[in-house]
């Protein structure tokens, strides 16, 4: 019989659901009331009394829509099922900025979202140095979001190798993943949110994976009642 050994996980993507602290940027989520509680006056009174919910049963989504001024969608990292283990060092070939944008625009169009490029700029976004989410030092960047649907007030930014290189002053960016960079960018953007819904994607080199990220974002928007 083979001997089991301790095997440290060398990399693990950020889970695609928020921490309690991150959820505070999205208070509408906590106002979601299970169907089984909707006829329960006492339960709703406790919820309301606790300041967790102020919605009238049956009008929940309308209230949530009205309250949305600026929000960040969660990240939709793929591949979290398999943590990378020691010795797993393959470096993916990343997409170009243009290719990545084209995929996002194409997928979004299927849901009726029409992104115009480079419409909205956000100044002085604080991110980890060189786009490193684990860095103890920070830098500020001026970010022009990759696309905006002005009518629906939906904006996206896809973090690519080109973005990483720009944030690092042209230096090689292979040692930092685009997902990690998206995490630190998301934290920075949460302090500088434009009106509407902003989502961050990341390029990990697989066209289908990026397509899936966009599809998951669209499913999220649908679940939110936003499209």
């Amino acid at each position: 019989m083979e001997k089991l050994t301790i095997t440290p996980v060398t990399a693990y993507g950020a889970p695609a659901y928020p921490t309690r602290g991150q959820l505070e940027a999205e208070p509408a989520a906590l106002r979601r009331v299970p169907r089984r509680w909707r006829g329960q006056a006492v339960v709703l009174a406790v919820l309301t009394g606790a300041g967790v919910a102020t919605l009238a049963v049956g009008t929940a989504q309308a209230v949530e829509k009205a309250k949305i001024v600026a929000r960040l969608a969660p990240l939709f990292p793929l591949g979290v099922e398999r943590p990378r283990l020691a010795g797993d060092v393959a470096v993916p070939t990343l997409l170009t900025e243009e290719d990545a944008r084209a995929i996002v625009v194409e997928e979004a169009k299927k849901a009726g979202i029409s992104f115009a490029p480079d419409v909205l700029a956000v100044e002085k976004v604080r991110i980890g140095k060189d786009g490193n989410r684990y860095a103890n030092e920070f830098q500020q960047i001026d970010l022009t979001l990759d696309g905006t649907d002005a009518g629906r007030k939906i904006h996206y930014e896809i973090v690519t190798e080109a973005d990483l290189a720009q944030w690092r002053g042209g230096k090689n960016a292979f040692c930092i993943s685009t997902l990690d960079a998206a995490v630190t960018l998301r934290e920075g953007l949460s302090q500088k949110l434009p009106e509407g819904t902003t989502v961050l994607f990341h390029d990990d080199g697989a066209r289908e994976a990026l397509r899936k990220q966009v599809q998951e974002f669209l499913a999220w928007l649908k679940a939110e009642g936003s499209i």
């Binding site: 693990y12 889970p15 695609a16 659901y17 928020p18 989520a29 906590l30 979601r32 009331v33 299970p34 169907r35 969660p74 939709f76 979290v80 099922e81 398999r82 943590p83 998951e216 499913a219 999220w220 679940a223 939110e224």
Partner: peptide
């Protein structure tokens, strides 16, 4: 168990399961 639990939670969150969130 960790990645399976994370993927499960992500799926329920993205579906905005009210029971999961509460």
């Amino acid at each position: 168990v960790l990645p399976i639990a994370d993927r499960l939670a992500a799926r329920l969150y993205q579906q905005r399961s009210a029971m999961f969130i509460q």
